[in-house]
Design a binder for these strands. Structure first.
Lengths: 141, 141
DNA sequence: GTTCCTAACTTGCAGCTCTAAGATATCCCT
DNA sequence: AGGGATATCTTAGAGCTGCAAGTTAGGAAC
């Protein structure tokens, strides 16, 4: 379970554990996968956005977002419409139900994670800042 | 691209970027995916192990390892044999070719990652230690 | 107004993951 | 021996991802 000096492996392991834990909470409480919920959260942060903007913000590809939006479109949590600004774009936005879900489940998830981190003795703010800086260094401004 | 307070999302983004970068390096240089290479690395760390031990060490499930081993079995990089200790087990070990690959590509990958981290101003040792501690807190001793 | 270009979106294919359920091999107990 | 219990490995089905290639809508150049 110990991977000497292998930060990449340590990080991957950590993230898959976090996502599995998040998945269990969301599936049990709201019948939704962690990844789909993250899409909702990001739509909420960006207010009204295109799929392209979503893909950039989540650091996934356009095809991936395209499929996620297709899967989420029928749930009543977000709306998809041609962008009034023109072009071959969809305008994605949360419905009221979506906003409520994001707020409720989002604060719960973040709360639990923050708690876990603090209880492990790792300073949350520092770790978050480091992670952000690494992300930026990897081309993700 | 900024997810306020959402450490989970930042971490996922960071990891997927790291793995995509690693994938490109390994695909170009050795025709191998990042995930498969991580299996090889872990087999190397564990010396001679069962699939179960591999799954634990990589924090993935048995079926996942089962398929990876099946895919890697024909490459000549590792050997699969019934465990002499008995039981329904396979004994997995690196071949000489596998050991060489792990050593060459492994040091290259770790070197590049370390460089990237240091150049971003994040202290490698501290970040690795924090990540390990979080991993342990999530049940992964 | 036709042609080309660009940006966003979609489809096809393959890799890796999970959960759930089935198969296999050994040990223990009677 | 014969009959569980237990641990490991495998198979089946579905979700998310990426890359490559195809489609669609608008703008620019001539």
């Amino acid at each position: 379970m110990n991977h000497p000096n292998n930060l990449g492996l340590e990080l991957h392991t950590l993230v898959s554990r976090l996502e599995r834990a998040g998945d269990r909470i969301l599936q049990a409480g709201h019948g939704m996968s962690y990844r789909r919920f993250m899409v909702l959260v990001t739509v909420g942060e960006l207010e009204a956005c295109t799929q392209r903007a979503l893909a950039d913000s989540l650091a996934v590809t356009e095809p991936s977002i395209s499929r996620m939006i297709a899967a989420l479109a029928g749930t009543g949590l977000l709306t998809v419409a041609p962008d009034p600004a023109g072009g071959n774009r969809r305008r994605i936005a949360l419905t009221d139900a979506g906003r409520k879900l994001v707020e409720r489940a989002g604060t719960e998830l973040i709360g639990r994670l923050t708690e876990l981190v603090e209880s492990s003795g790792v300073p949350f703010g520092t770790y978050l800042a480091y992670t952000r800086r690494l992300n930026a260094a990897l081309g993700g401004g």
